[in-house]
Every structure is written in C-alpha cells, then in structure tokens.
C-alpha cells in the first residue's frame, strides 16, 4: 500500500467551551476516496475547514502531499502551494461563486495564480476544464445568476480543479442539488477521478452518495470518530449503534413512517 497522500492525526478544534472536533484521525491513500459521514453538527464541516486551512486546529496535525499544514501559511508562496494541493467544493452553489464573475473568468483567475501561461494557453485550459465538467460555451461565459444550481456547482468544481490539486474536499457538494442532477455530478466526479487521479474527501450526510463515490468511510458523532472502515462494510454491517441508527433513518423502498405514540 502506498503512502497516504493526506493524514490527519489527533485533530481537535475547540470553539469557546464547545469541542467541535475531538481527536479525529484518518488517512487518505493516493487516488483513494474517504467519506466523512455524520449528522448536522457532528463536526464534519469543521474538519473540512481544518483541512483547507480556513480554520486553525486547536490540537493535532495535518499532513498533505508529504508536507505539514497544521499551522497557517507563512508566505504567499506557501499559501499558493497549499492551494495547489488541497481544494474544496462547498455545499451552496448559490454563494460559492462571485456574482460578478463568469465561470470562465473565475477559472481563469485561478489558472493565472497557480499556473500562469499566456492568455491563449489559459483560455485553452479553461475550455478543457469546462469540457471535463460538462459545461458548454454559453454556460461558461454566463454570470452565475443565469445558471442553475447544477451548472454553478460544475463551475465550482472546475474552479477547484483548475489549480490541479491532488486532493479535493467535497463538503456536501451535491446536497443542495436535486436527485437527478446529484447522480450526474457524482458520475462526473467518478470520471474526473479516473482521468486525473485526484483523491476525494467526501463529506456527506447522504449514505447513498457516500456508497457511490467512496472506498473508505469514517462516521462522526459529536465531534468524535465512532466508526471507521471500508464504506461497503460500514453501510452493510455497521458495528456501532450510532452508525446503525444513521443507516436506519434513511428512507428506503418499503419504509413506512411510524406514527409516534402519544402517551
């Protein structure tokens, strides 16, 4: 087995007197994909913020691509290097794009920062990325307000990929989309992984999404990891009560809502 491309060990984040993330450890193998599953408030989004450097961990360390990123970046070059290692796609496609900027412009801005190149080279690369995420030329040059949620999320994914990161954090990235668009985006993410070899951290409360895209999973509850292992095993044969509860609360064919007995 190859060296993990991303390792978190003993990750802890305390806000005031609330411990949002408590001693979380995991490893992501190169080209692999890891799901972080849990209900709202379980601390999974905080983990995403720690991984991308948007929040600073109270304790613990993060290694990505063989380099430590537990502390804030000291220099502009370091900041850029980190940006080219780990990228993120957020949940809400309506606020994750600058309303004044077309998709082409925001992707180009990222290319200019990370890879440079002439205007023509960058334009060619922007078109390539648009093809990768399935955006046509009109959508690529439209302002976000003229695009649907799914189209915006494609732009957000293309922008995240523009820096050619080794790791992509997907923070509930398909949760705001309707089911058919979710499936399209998930298939596309699978294809992108095959094409680019990027590794995924998929943060989700949706077990169906998790099953489709990931090999391994950790289950978080109240900031702690309660179960870790291969995704299929966790979903089919959960060892922990909380995981079982999480799985059983998903509606499925034949599922009947039970009326709560009022005493």
């Amino acid at each position: 087995m190859s060296e993990p491309i991303l390792t978190a060990s003993g990750l802890t984040k305390v806000f005031g007197d609330h411990t949002a993330v408590d001693d979380v450890s995991f490893a992501l193998p190169e080209g692999g994909s890891l799901a972080i599953v849990g209900e709202s408030g379980s601390g999974k989004t905080t983990v995403a913020k720690l991984l991308t450097g948007l929040e600073r961990a109270t304790a613990g360390s993060i290694m990505a691509c063989g380099r430590d990123r537990s502390l804030p970046a000291r220099s502009a070059a370091e900041r850029r290097r980190r940006g080219a290692e780990v990228q993120i796609v957020f949940q809400d496609p309506y606020s994750s794009l600058d309303p004044r900027q077309s998709g082409a412009d925001s992707i180009d801005e990222v290319r200019r920062l990370h890879r440079g190149g002439s205007r023509a080279e960058r334009a060619a690369r922007v078109t390539e990325l648009a093809d990768l995420v399935g955006l046509d030329n009109r959508q690529l040059h439209a302002l976000p307000r003229d695009l649907s949620g799914g189209q915006r999320q494609r732009i957000a994914i293309a922008r995240a990929l523009a820096a050619e990161p080794r790791i992509l954090v997907l923070d509930e990235s398909v949760a705001a989309l309707d089911v058919s668009i979710q499936a399209q985006i998930l298939n596309m993410l699978g294809d992108i992984r095959d094409a680019t070899g990027v590794s995924y951290i998929l943060i989700s409360h949706d077990l169906a999404v998790v099953r489709q895209l990931t090999d391994d999973a950790i289950v978080m509850h109240r900031g702690r990891v309660v179960e870790a292992g291969p995704t299929a095993r966790i979903l089919d044969d959960p060892q922990e009560d909380y995981t079982r509860l999480l799985r059983d609360s998903v509606p499925r064919p034949g599922w009947k809502p039970q009326r709560r007995q009022v005493a």
């Binding site: 948007l54 949940q91 920062l113």
Partner: peptide
C-alpha cells in the same frame, strides 16, 4: 463561500478584498 474558495486557492487577503 466564494470568498472562502478564493482563500483556499491561496489568493492574498488584499487581492480578494480589492477584486471581489
């Protein structure tokens, strides 16, 4: 979140403020 996305990309704070 677009501001956070720009931060993760590695843009400097003053550039994000000025341009976005």
């Amino acid at each position: 979140e677009y501001i956070a996305a720009l931060e993760v990309q590695g843009f400097s704070a003053w550039l994000i403020c000025l341009r976005h």
